[in-house]
Design a protein around this nucleic acid. Structure first.
Lengths: 146, 146
DNA sequence: GTAACTGCAAAATATTTGCATCCTT
DNA sequence: AAGGATGCAAATATTTTGCAGTTAC
């Protein structure tokens, strides 16, 4: 991925918001910026802190909820009641997430990654069950912690 | 599965606790009973209510934590911050869970099932990542809701 | 009898809601 | 100007901790 100028990033953020019919506000810009800068997924707390203590916790809750609803970010479930959020690929939209990649949680650095190149497998279910979305979370050691 | 008498169940519960070096107390007995009676996984709230308003919320927290530590139950992550718990197979023990089955959440009845016969797939990770536990949660319509 | 477990109170956290004000369009 | 978004206060809900009393072994 080529390094982007600050300006390119700003444009990208703005277009992402406009495409989703959201007004372009400071908090939304900053939270999206965080997601773009950050490798891996972020928990609510990361976002609150990462944004430079600038805005209210309530705004973070509302902004994340809005982004999930619009398909801008998606939720990665974890076993410890601390869900994490990550950017969706561009083909997600309101009401329809299309994320078919798996997620990876490093046991060492505790980061969560979207492995966009690893597609969720087909799961053969017992008779009578029909599958919708498949969520895969692999836990292990990431490439930076080997 | 043959229907078990109340007595058989009581024996089973007691042996499960003793095998894990836990003292046999009322709350533990009742919570395990709930798990055995209940098809599918339970959230914290289900357990609190299900047990007949009998014991403290704190006891439920502590009991569930103990059971997870001992490998008696396992956690099923969800995307909505409401983790669920389900009984492990008998070969799990303290410090080592061996649950390789997938989980299924029904979008209609909202129950969560352990599909013990469906084994988690092998996931081919990018170079540099090494896999430990793989968690798969499939969302769809269960056999009772078709 | 001793260690382990429970229940209560209270603290610490996390999440949601209402409303007045401010910002984007 | 109008609708949407934010920030603050406060209401709820959730989870954790300390401790004294009770129970299992």
């Amino acid at each position: 991925m080529p390094k982007q100028s600050a300006n390119e990033i700003a444009v990208r953020i703005e277009s992402l918001l406009k495409r989703n019919r959201l007004s372009v506000t400071d908090s939304r810009r900053k939270i999206l910026q965080l997601f773009l800068e950050h490798t891996g997924a972020m928990a609510h707390g990361d976002i609150e802190k990462g944004a430079g203590e600038k805005f209210d916790r309530v705004t973070v809750y509302r902004t994340l909820q809005t982004f999930v609803d619009k398909g801008i970010i998606h939720i990665i479930p974890t076993a410890d009641n601390s869900i994490r959020y990550a950017l969706c690929k561009d083909d997600c939209g309101e009401g329809h997430h299309h994320d078919h990649h798996i997620h990876f949680v490093c046991n060492h650095c505790n980061k969560t990654y979207c492995l966009d190149d690893v597609v969720t497998p087909d799961i053969k279910l017992p008779r009578g069950y029909s599958a919708g979305h498949v969520e895969v979370v692999v836990e292990g050691i990431c490439k930076n912690c080997q």
